[in-house]
Protein backbone atom coordinates (compact mmCIF):
# COMPACT_ATOMS: atom_id res chain seq x y z
CA UNK A 1 0.00 0.00 0.00
CA UNK A 2 1.37 3.43 -0.93
CA UNK A 3 1.03 5.88 1.96
CA UNK A 4 2.99 8.73 0.39
CA UNK A 5 1.03 11.13 -1.84
CA UNK A 6 2.39 11.69 -5.34
CA UNK A 7 3.84 15.09 -6.25
CA UNK A 8 0.63 15.90 -8.14
CA UNK A 9 -1.52 14.94 -5.17
CA UNK A 10 0.57 17.07 -2.79
CA UNK A 11 0.01 19.90 -5.25
CA UNK A 12 -3.73 19.15 -5.22
CA UNK A 13 -3.82 19.43 -1.40
CA UNK A 14 -1.84 22.69 -1.42
CA UNK A 15 -3.89 24.19 -4.25
CA UNK A 16 -7.14 23.22 -2.56
CA UNK A 17 -6.09 24.89 0.70
CA UNK A 18 -5.07 28.05 -1.18
CA UNK A 19 -8.29 28.14 -3.18
CA UNK A 20 -10.53 27.58 -0.16
CA UNK A 21 -8.92 30.56 1.58
CA UNK A 22 -9.03 32.83 -1.47
CA UNK A 23 -12.58 31.89 -2.45
CA UNK A 24 -13.83 32.69 1.06
CA UNK A 25 -13.15 36.40 0.56
CA UNK A 26 -13.42 36.69 -3.23
CA UNK A 27 -16.02 39.30 -4.06
CA UNK A 28 -16.05 40.74 -0.52
CA UNK A 29 -15.63 44.53 -0.41
CA UNK A 30 -12.41 44.41 1.59
CA UNK A 31 -11.27 41.16 -0.06
CA UNK A 32 -8.28 39.47 1.54
CA UNK A 33 -8.17 42.13 4.29
CA UNK A 34 -10.88 40.05 5.99
CA UNK A 35 -8.36 37.31 6.68
CA UNK A 36 -6.84 39.69 9.26
CA UNK A 37 -9.91 41.76 10.15
CA UNK A 38 -12.14 38.81 11.02
CA UNK A 39 -9.96 37.24 13.76
CA UNK A 40 -8.86 40.70 14.94
CA UNK A 41 -12.43 41.89 15.54
CA UNK A 42 -13.46 38.56 17.07
CA UNK A 43 -10.56 38.59 19.50
CA UNK A 44 -11.02 42.25 20.38
CA UNK A 45 -14.71 41.81 21.19
CA UNK A 46 -14.10 38.71 23.28
CA UNK A 47 -11.12 40.31 25.01
CA UNK A 48 -13.03 43.42 26.08
CA UNK A 49 -16.21 41.57 27.07
CA UNK A 50 -14.46 38.95 29.20
CA UNK A 51 -12.04 41.46 30.70
CA UNK A 52 -15.07 43.42 31.91
CA UNK A 53 -16.76 40.28 33.29
CA UNK A 54 -13.61 39.12 35.03
CA UNK A 55 -12.96 42.65 36.33
CA UNK A 56 -9.38 42.30 35.09
CA UNK A 57 -7.13 44.97 33.53
CA UNK A 58 -7.71 44.77 29.77
CA UNK A 59 -4.03 44.62 28.78
CA UNK A 60 -3.30 41.76 31.15
CA UNK A 61 -6.47 39.84 30.43
CA UNK A 62 -6.28 40.21 26.65
CA UNK A 63 -2.80 38.69 26.56
CA UNK A 64 -3.90 35.88 28.88
CA UNK A 65 -7.05 35.16 26.90
CA UNK A 66 -5.41 35.33 23.47
CA UNK A 67 -2.54 33.03 24.46
CA UNK A 68 -5.03 30.23 25.17
CA UNK A 69 -7.94 31.11 22.93
CA UNK A 70 -6.00 31.36 19.66
CA UNK A 71 -4.70 27.76 19.75
CA UNK A 72 -8.11 26.61 21.03
CA UNK A 73 -9.84 28.30 18.10
CA UNK A 74 -7.46 26.47 15.77
CA UNK A 75 -8.44 23.17 17.38
CA UNK A 76 -12.16 23.91 17.33
CA UNK A 77 -12.31 25.18 13.75
CA UNK A 78 -10.06 22.42 12.41
CA UNK A 79 -11.86 19.61 14.21
CA UNK A 80 -15.34 20.78 13.22
CA UNK A 81 -14.45 21.28 9.56
CA UNK A 82 -12.47 18.03 9.40
CA UNK A 83 -15.34 16.04 10.92
CA UNK A 84 -17.65 16.17 7.89
CA UNK A 85 -14.97 16.81 5.28
CA UNK A 86 -15.09 13.29 3.81
CA UNK A 87 -18.87 13.14 3.51
CA UNK A 88 -18.97 16.70 2.13
CA UNK A 89 -16.72 15.55 -0.71
CA UNK A 90 -18.76 12.48 -1.60
CA UNK A 91 -18.93 13.73 -5.18
CA UNK A 92 -15.14 13.26 -5.54
CA UNK A 93 -15.05 10.03 -3.66
CA UNK A 94 -17.74 8.37 -5.76
CA UNK A 95 -16.22 9.32 -9.09
CA UNK A 96 -12.45 9.40 -8.84
CA UNK A 97 -9.96 7.43 -6.83
CA UNK A 98 -8.79 9.93 -4.24
CA UNK A 99 -7.38 8.98 -0.85
CA UNK A 100 -10.11 10.00 1.59
CA UNK A 101 -7.61 11.36 4.10
CA UNK A 102 -6.81 14.31 1.82
CA UNK A 103 -10.08 16.02 2.70
CA UNK A 104 -9.55 16.29 6.48
CA UNK A 105 -5.93 17.27 5.78
CA UNK A 106 -7.10 20.10 3.48
CA UNK A 107 -9.38 21.44 6.25
CA UNK A 108 -6.51 21.11 8.73
CA UNK A 109 -4.38 23.19 6.37
CA UNK A 110 -7.03 25.93 6.06
CA UNK A 111 -7.47 26.10 9.84
CA UNK A 112 -3.68 26.22 10.29
CA UNK A 113 -3.40 29.25 7.98
CA UNK A 114 -6.14 30.98 10.04
CA UNK A 115 -4.24 30.05 13.20
CA UNK A 116 -0.96 31.54 11.93
CA UNK A 117 -2.78 34.79 11.06
CA UNK A 118 -4.49 34.93 14.47
CA UNK A 119 -1.15 34.14 16.13
CA UNK A 120 0.44 37.06 14.27
CA UNK A 121 -2.31 39.27 15.69
CA UNK A 122 -1.34 38.08 19.17
CA UNK A 123 2.24 39.13 18.47
CA UNK A 124 0.91 42.47 17.21
CA UNK A 125 -0.83 43.00 20.57
CA UNK A 126 2.44 42.16 22.24
CA UNK A 127 4.04 45.05 20.36
CA UNK A 128 1.10 47.40 20.97
CA UNK A 129 1.01 46.75 24.71
CA UNK A 130 4.81 46.80 24.88
CA UNK A 131 4.58 43.51 26.75
CA UNK A 132 7.72 41.76 27.87
CA UNK A 133 9.18 39.20 25.44
CA UNK A 134 10.07 36.18 27.56
CA UNK A 135 12.90 33.76 26.70
CA UNK A 136 10.61 30.68 27.12
CA UNK A 137 8.68 31.95 24.08
CA UNK A 138 11.33 30.27 21.91
CA UNK A 139 9.53 27.02 22.71
CA UNK A 140 6.39 28.13 20.82
CA UNK A 141 7.21 26.37 17.51
CA UNK A 142 7.34 23.11 19.49
CA UNK A 143 4.03 23.99 21.18
CA UNK A 144 2.49 24.52 17.73
CA UNK A 145 3.81 21.14 16.58
CA UNK A 146 2.35 19.41 19.64
CA UNK A 147 -1.04 21.03 18.97
CA UNK A 148 -0.86 19.99 15.31
CA UNK A 149 -0.52 16.35 16.39
CA UNK A 150 -3.48 16.66 18.78
CA UNK A 151 -5.66 18.45 16.22
CA UNK A 152 -4.76 16.08 13.36
CA UNK A 153 -5.46 13.05 15.56
CA UNK A 154 -8.79 14.31 16.87
CA UNK A 155 -9.91 15.62 13.48
CA UNK A 156 -9.12 12.45 11.51
CA UNK A 157 -10.63 10.26 14.22
CA UNK A 158 -13.89 12.21 14.17
CA UNK A 159 -13.91 12.35 10.35
CA UNK A 160 -13.81 8.53 10.28
CA UNK A 161 -16.50 8.17 12.96
CA UNK A 162 -18.72 10.74 11.24
CA UNK A 163 -18.93 8.57 8.10
CA UNK A 164 -20.73 5.90 10.10
CA UNK A 165 -22.64 8.20 12.48
CA UNK A 166 -23.63 11.25 10.49
CA UNK A 167 -25.63 12.91 13.26
CA UNK A 168 -22.83 13.34 15.81
CA UNK A 169 -21.71 16.85 14.89
CA UNK A 170 -23.88 18.59 17.53
CA UNK A 171 -22.50 16.18 20.14
CA UNK A 172 -18.95 17.10 19.08
CA UNK A 173 -19.80 20.82 19.24
CA UNK A 174 -21.20 20.44 22.75
CA UNK A 175 -18.22 18.34 23.84
CA UNK A 176 -15.81 21.01 22.60
CA UNK A 177 -17.79 23.75 24.36
CA UNK A 178 -17.71 21.76 27.58
CA UNK A 179 -13.94 21.26 27.28
CA UNK A 180 -13.46 24.98 26.63
CA UNK A 181 -15.49 26.24 29.58
CA UNK A 182 -14.11 23.71 32.06
CA UNK A 183 -10.56 24.72 31.17
CA UNK A 184 -8.34 27.66 32.01
CA UNK A 185 -8.68 29.34 28.62
CA UNK A 186 -11.34 31.94 29.51
CA UNK A 187 -10.85 31.90 33.27
CA UNK A 188 -7.55 32.21 35.09
CA UNK A 189 -6.78 29.30 37.46
CA UNK A 190 -7.15 31.55 40.53
CA UNK A 191 -10.91 31.69 39.84
CA UNK A 192 -11.04 27.99 40.75
CA UNK A 193 -8.87 28.11 43.89
CA UNK A 194 -11.77 28.38 46.35
CA UNK A 195 -13.50 25.26 45.02
CA UNK A 196 -11.83 21.87 45.48
CA UNK A 197 -14.17 20.10 43.02
CA UNK A 198 -13.42 22.56 40.25
CA UNK A 199 -9.71 22.30 40.98
CA UNK A 200 -9.95 18.51 40.71
CA UNK A 201 -11.64 18.89 37.31
CA UNK A 202 -8.81 21.16 36.18
CA UNK A 203 -6.24 18.56 37.23
CA UNK A 204 -7.80 15.95 34.95
CA UNK A 205 -8.71 18.26 32.07
CA UNK A 206 -6.17 17.70 29.27
CA UNK A 207 -7.07 21.06 27.72
CA UNK A 208 -5.42 22.86 30.68
CA UNK A 209 -2.16 21.04 29.93
CA UNK A 210 -2.53 21.72 26.21
CA UNK A 211 -3.14 25.43 26.91
CA UNK A 212 -0.11 25.56 29.22
CA UNK A 213 2.15 25.10 26.19
CA UNK A 214 1.11 28.60 25.08
CA UNK A 215 -0.04 30.36 28.27
CA UNK A 216 3.09 29.61 30.29
CA UNK A 217 5.69 30.97 27.84
CA UNK A 218 3.55 33.87 26.54
CA UNK A 219 1.69 35.12 29.63
CA UNK A 220 3.58 33.84 32.65
CA UNK A 221 7.02 33.92 31.00
CA UNK A 222 7.92 30.44 32.25
CA UNK A 223 8.77 27.16 30.53
CA UNK A 224 5.98 24.57 30.25
CA UNK A 225 6.86 21.78 32.68
CA UNK A 226 7.50 18.13 31.91
CA UNK A 227 3.93 17.07 32.82
CA UNK A 228 2.55 19.52 30.26
CA UNK A 229 4.72 18.06 27.52
CA UNK A 230 4.01 14.46 28.51
CA UNK A 231 0.23 14.99 28.64
CA UNK A 232 0.23 16.87 25.31
CA UNK A 233 2.47 14.51 23.39
CA UNK A 234 0.93 11.35 24.83
CA UNK A 235 -2.66 12.50 24.17
CA UNK A 236 -1.68 13.70 20.68
CA UNK A 237 0.13 10.52 19.74
CA UNK A 238 -2.63 8.28 21.14
CA UNK A 239 -5.27 10.24 19.21
CA UNK A 240 -3.25 10.23 15.98
CA UNK A 241 -2.36 6.53 16.14
CA UNK A 242 -5.96 5.58 16.95
CA UNK A 243 -7.20 7.80 14.09
CA UNK A 244 -4.78 6.36 11.52
CA UNK A 245 -5.39 2.78 12.63
CA UNK A 246 -9.13 3.24 12.35
CA UNK A 247 -8.78 5.03 9.01
CA UNK A 248 -6.67 2.31 7.38
CA UNK A 249 -8.85 -0.43 8.84
CA UNK A 250 -12.14 1.04 7.61
CA UNK A 251 -11.29 3.07 4.51
CA UNK A 252 -12.41 0.35 2.09
CA UNK A 253 -15.91 0.60 3.58
CA UNK A 254 -16.23 4.40 3.31
CA UNK A 255 -17.65 4.31 -0.22
CA UNK A 256 -20.69 2.37 1.01
CA UNK A 257 -21.54 5.04 3.61
CA UNK A 258 -20.74 8.47 2.09
Amino acid sequence: MNYVPTKAHRYFIWLHIKNLILIRYRGAYLGLMWIILEPLMYLLILGFVFATFNKAPIKEYVLYLFSGLIPWQFLERAVLSMTDSITQNAVFIRRIRTPYIYFPLIQLGVAFVDFIIAFSILLLFFLLYRAEWHIPMVVLPLSIMAWMIIVAGLGILLAVLFIFFQDIKPIIQMGLMLLLFTSTIFFKPDVFYGDSVKLKILQYDPVCYWANLFQKPIFYGIWPDLTDWIVCLMSGLILLSAALMLYYKLKDKFYYYV
Binding site: K7, Y11, R26, I96
Partner: peptide, 28 residues
Amino acid sequence: LELGIGFHPELSGRENCYLAGALLDFTP
Protein backbone atom coordinates in the same frame (compact mmCIF):
# COMPACT_ATOMS: atom_id res chain seq x y z
CA LEU B 1 -17.19 8.66 -15.02
CA GLU B 2 -18.44 12.22 -14.94
CA LEU B 3 -17.16 15.42 -16.50
CA GLY B 4 -15.80 18.18 -14.32
CA ILE B 5 -14.81 16.15 -11.27
CA GLY B 6 -12.58 18.33 -9.13
CA PHE B 7 -13.87 21.56 -10.70
CA HIS B 8 -14.77 24.34 -8.29
CA PRO B 9 -17.54 26.66 -9.54
CA GLU B 10 -15.93 29.80 -8.06
CA LEU B 11 -12.60 29.23 -9.81
CA SER B 12 -11.79 30.18 -13.38
CA GLY B 13 -11.45 27.61 -16.17
CA ARG B 14 -7.66 28.03 -16.08
CA GLU B 15 -7.48 27.57 -12.27
CA ASN B 16 -9.72 24.51 -12.53
CA CYS B 17 -7.41 22.93 -15.09
CA TYR B 18 -4.64 22.97 -12.48
CA LEU B 19 -6.90 21.79 -9.64
CA ALA B 20 -8.68 18.98 -11.46
CA GLY B 21 -5.49 18.16 -13.36
CA ALA B 22 -3.70 17.49 -10.07
CA LEU B 23 -6.40 14.93 -9.26
CA LEU B 24 -5.59 13.21 -12.54
CA ASP B 25 -1.94 13.08 -11.37
CA PHE B 26 -0.66 16.07 -13.37
CA THR B 27 2.02 18.22 -11.78
CA PRO B 28 1.72 21.99 -12.47
